[in-house]
Amino acid sequence: MASIVAVIASTHHPFYYRATTATGEDRPPFADEWERKILAFRETLTRANPDVLVMVGSDHFHQLWLDNMPQFLVGKAPFYDANWYNEEREFGLPRMLLQGQEDLSAHILRNGLDEGFDLAFSNELRIDHSITCPIITLRPEADLPIVPIYTNIFAPPLPQPSRFVKLGESIRRIVEQWPSHLRVAIIGTGHLSLELGGPRQFGPHGPDPEFDRRAVEWIASGDLDNCLREVTLDSLHSPGNATHGFMDFMLMMGVAGAGAKADHVDTLDLFHTMEAYFTWYPSGAPA
């Protein structure tokens, strides 16, 4: 059976690429520290020596639209083109081409359906920065095949937070049962408190530092009980109007497992949002 060699949860900040490739006067003052933290985070994946990446993210109204909106969607394609015109325009993100791992996509779809998740699928999926940001930060060579999994954290009505956790638990179990010798890393990205297009956006910190502090503690300690007790679809409006992206962190807590302490925890307090990086090694830390 396949082995899960790393579980990784991260924010996906689209400004990282531009900030850390800028030089001279264009380079923002926080870029050096940000890059140092990312290089340390990247090393946690490199050390695990994965063959395949399962990538959990959320389409930001790029390919998925309100005339036909899936709640959870698995890509199954030999290749995925990546990044969109408006991401080039606003964030300076490069166009990318990633290889797919169709056997694992098929395995996740079949078993996910059989476990009670009516997963949508796509045979032609152009992915966006929720998946390419962690490729850029964690595996900039973009040389490993992926299985993209999209969640709807964006267009209400949304699934309940507990559903994200359960999907994460199922993904963990399903990947562990994949009849393959390959080493799989499961990587998912979301947000802590975040406001987009509302009065609290682009402040000196994230819109709710106290929520961020508690959220990092829940994730780092695998405290699903308290997280699920405090987080509801309604409560997530309070820390910031885009904070429902936190449910992708909850999905990754489901993958890591209740009570699982993260082996790597790091944060960076930036303007507009708090960055947060977590790695678990389910099979023990690599030598």
């Binding site: 930001h60 109204f61 408006n86 325009r89 606003e90 964006f154 267009a155 987009l196 297009g197 509302g198 956006q201 682009f202 109007n241 885009a242 303007f271």
Partner: peptide
């Protein structure tokens, strides 16, 4: 209106007039 859609399009139209970083967004 979905605030992400509004913000993204309005940044595309008006960020270019910024005299300092993030002026339009703020």
């Amino acid at each position: 209106a979905h605030p992400f859609l509004t913000l993204t399009l309005f940044i595309a139209m008006f960020e270019r007039d910024n005299k300092e970083p993030l002026e339009y967004q703020k």
